[in-house]
């Protein structure tokens, strides 16, 4: 589905992504883990077109999408959410969702004035869909609240909701569970599985919660210092020496050696 080949992203002398190569299978829920500063979010940003890579190639279903702007990737079915929830703060939660589907009739200046009826029909359909999504996410009561005023966890739900407003092919979730309570996290997990099975979304999930990763993701990719360290099931990753070293440093091994 998505192939990343030898991707580099440098900020001055700092190599945030330093030659990452990985492949994401169609229909999978791939977990992306790694210690803080491993380059996970930068990798997301480069794939999603927010940042242009220093070098390297990203392809989607064989098509080169390196450096395409985000709105074009959106129309190809590539969506992402943010680690720190983003929202249109001056609009209601429902309006936030209704913003998402691109190419609405009302976006054309001419039709704004002369296609009122068609726009109204489309808006009605979108509104119904938005309400459906809100209900699915159990936040119907927030429909008319300003999105800037709801809680952090609820904004996270809204982020996920956004990806449900269109038929996405692949969705990148950046710490969708951060700052969200257990019950809500399970709701989000259920939603992800359902979208994956019923609608065939491919997911890539950055997450620090290993239970969450373990429940959803296969395979899991571990990154450190801008490179891909290992790929496999969560148990394989957990047993990987290099991964343990990246997370805990070499201290533990030395301690083992001392005890032995």
């Amino acid at each position: 589905m998505i192939k990343v080949e030898n991707l580099h992203k440098h900020f001055g002398g700092f190599h945030a992504v330093d030659g990452a190569t990985l492949e994401i299978e169609q229909g999978s829920i791939t977990g992306l883990i790694g210690p803080n500063g491993a380059g996970k979010t930068t990798l997301f940003n480069v794939i999603a077109g927010v940042l242009t890579p220093t070098s390297g190639r990203v392809t989607m279903a064989g098509e080169d999408i390196t450096g395409l702007p985000p709105h074009e990737l959106f129309h190809k079915g590539l969506l992402r959410t943010f680690q720190i929830a983003h929202e249109f703060h001056s609009m209601s939660c429902r309006e936030n969702l209704m913003m998402v589907p691109g190419d609405q009739i009302g976006e054309r200046l001419w039709d704004t004035w002369f296609g009122r009826k068609r726009i109204a029909d489309q808006e009605r359909a979108l509104r119904a869909k938005a309400d459906e999504v809100l209900e699915f996410l159990t936040i119907t009561h927030l429909a008319d609240h300003k999105a800037g005023q709801v809680s952090g966890g609820q904004k996270k739900l809204l982020e996920l909701g956004r990806t449900m407003m269109v038929d996405a092919k692949i969705v990148f979730l950046d710490e969708v569970g951060a700052g969200v309570n257990r019950t809500l996290l399970n709701t989000i997990g259920d939603a992800i599985i359902r979208l994956n099975q019923d609608r065939g979304y491919t997911f890539v999930v950055i997450e620090h919660d290993m239970d969450f990763i373990g429940r959803l993701c296969d395979p899991v990719i571990c990154m450190a210092e801008g490179k891909v360290l290992a790929q496999g099931t969560l148990d394989e990753i957990k047993a990987n020496e290099q991964v343990i070293e990246a997370y805990l440093g070499t201290g533990l091994k030395n301690k083992d050696m001392l005890e032995a």
């Binding site: 999603a48 927010v50 702007p69 985000p70 709105h71 959106f74 129309h75 969506l79 992402r80 943010f82 983003h86 929202e87 249109f88 703060h89 001056s90 609009m91 309006e95 913003m99 998402v100 589907p101 691109g102 190419d103 609405q104 009739i105 009302g106 976006e107 054309r108 200046l109 704004t112 726009i119 808006e123 956004r162 269109v166």
Partner: peptide, 20 residues
């Protein structure tokens, strides 16, 4: 809708881009 896109872009440029 065009006006709302403008407001969305003004509210949060990154998100507007990622909303197509």
């Amino acid at each position: 809708r065009t006006g709302k896109s403008m407001r969305a872009y003004s509210d949060n440029e990154d998100l507007a881009l990622l909303s197509g």
